[in-house]
Every structure is written in C-alpha cells, then in structure tokens.
C-alpha cells in the first residue's frame, strides 16, 4: 500500500478552495500555507501569463518515496509511515530547519513565533484559534495539534487524522471541480494508477530523484488556441 494522489490539471480551475480548506482544517496561522495554487508563468494566480498557456498548479507535500527531508532530519522527527506518508512528530522536532532547506518543493513551513501571537497580530480575537480541534497521534507520535509549538516545522500530513476515520483529505473534499483523487499507487487497478497510466501522469522535478507520491495529469486545452504560422 502506497498512499498517493493525482491532481488533474485539466479539471483544476485555480480557485484555491483546496488551499483554504487545508488552512482552515489544519489550523495554519497567517503567513503559513501547507498547500498552494499558482498560475505558472504569472506573478498573480488566475492571471494568464502574457504568452503561453494558462493553467493552474496546486503544490503541497509530495510525500516522496525518497524524501530528502526524512533523510536529513537529525532526530527522526520527520519520518515516512508504512504507506509512504511523510509525517512530522511535533514533540520530537528540534527546529534546525535542515528539512526546509533540503525539500526542493518549498512545502515545509516553520513556526517563526508563537502561532497565537501571529493570529492576534493578524486581527483575530486574543486566544482565538481555528482548525481540527483535537490532537492526533499516530503510533504514539504527535503528528497533528491544533496550535503548534513555536520553533518547529510543519507541513501537509495528507490529512492522516481524517484518513483514520475513513475520510478524504480536506483539499480533496474542498475541491469543487473534483480534480483531486487519492488511492493506492501499488495497486495497478486503483483509480490513481489508472489515471496516471491513461492520462500520462507526471511528477514535479523528477530529475531530483525524490520519487513523489503526488502525480499530475497534464491539462489539455482551456481555450481555442489559434496558431499563427
């Protein structure tokens, strides 16, 4: 069993609902985003680049099978589970930020100050927090908590707390276009394996050798392109 997901760039409309769902469900303080959506080639999302093709690219933790972050962690705080999910033990992390440096996808986020302080600065009522309210432990390790410690790293945990309840990740449930699919990459008959096979699924930065569990399906066509020869 290798848990993976497929994002269909043909279906993605760049609405950033997955970003917001992820942020709300997982209690990320202002300035911190586990999941991002941008329009490649353009500074602003939803603004077509001057030339080329407009498409939208969501990027979150790729849950690599050869994860540089896991290999560099000096205290085994970030680790791969049996199904390939890369998690962080919030009680173990010492905050050296080696993993942030080693990750080529820029998905790892550091708590530069107390999250509650950041929330207050951003205009929330003092001590107000949002997100899934309970701590979640996997194999005894604290892999989710609603308000994180200062000075530790956090990132997408593939909604491991919902997975155990049989629910899809927040981003998958929040996607209005149904562009996200999860499933077993080891099973050739799973939805994700079929999509990757039939629709030429690709990875980000395959040349880095990280073997991501996150695959993308190339966009086909969003508007009628006229070719001037």
């Amino acid at each position: 069993m290798r848990r993976g997901w497929v994002i269909d760039l043909e279906k993605c409309i760049g609405c950033r609902s997955c970003m917001v769902a992820c942020k709300q469900h997982n209690g990320q303080p202002p300035g911190t985003w586990w999941n991002r959506v941008f329009t490649p080639g353009s500074r602003e999302n939803q603004v077509a680049p001057e030339k080329g093709k407009e498409y939208f690219l969501p990027v979150t933790c790729q849950h690599c099978a050869n994860p540089p972050c896991v290999k560099v962690c000096p205290v085994d705080a970030t680790y791969s589970t049996e199904d390939g999910t890369v998690l962080i033990d919030f009680e173990r992390c010492i905050g050296c930020r080696y993993c942030i440096s080693a990750c080529p996808y820029g998905v790892r986020q550091f708590n530069w100050e107390e999250p509650k302080k950041t929330l207050y600065k951003a205009g929330y009522v003092e001590n107000y927090t949002y997100g899934y309210p309970k701590d979640f432990r996997k194999d005894g390790r604290l892999v989710y908590m609603p308000v994180r410690f200062k000075g530790i790293t956090e990132k997408c945990h593939f909604c491991v707390h919902y997975y155990e309840e049989g629910l899809e990740p927040a981003c998958v449930r929040g996607c209005p276009g149904g562009a996200r699919f999860t499933g077993d990459l080891d099973d050739p008959e799973s939805v994700v394996s079929k999509l990757i096979r039939d629709r030429d699924g690709f990875n980000l930065l395959p040349e880095k050798g990280t073997k991501p569990s996150c695959y993308y399906l190339p966009p086909r066509r969003k508007e009628n392109l006229s070719y001037d020869f």
């Binding site: 300035g31 911190t32 991002r36 080639g41 680049p49 080329g52 093709k53 951003a122 930065l205």
Partner: peptide, 26 residues
Amino acid sequence: IPLTFNPIGLQEIFWSYPVASGRYVE
C-alpha cells in the same frame, strides 16, 4: 528557489513557484 521550471508553452521563461514566507507582516 528549487521549484523553478519552464511552464507549459513558455519555454523561454524560467519561473519560480512562490513559497509562503511563514511570517505575517501587515
């Protein structure tokens, strides 16, 4: 930024995927 690539159809542009700074400043 390591996640920098040529977007589809934009071979001449080397585009960096933005990263959340992690710091909130109004």
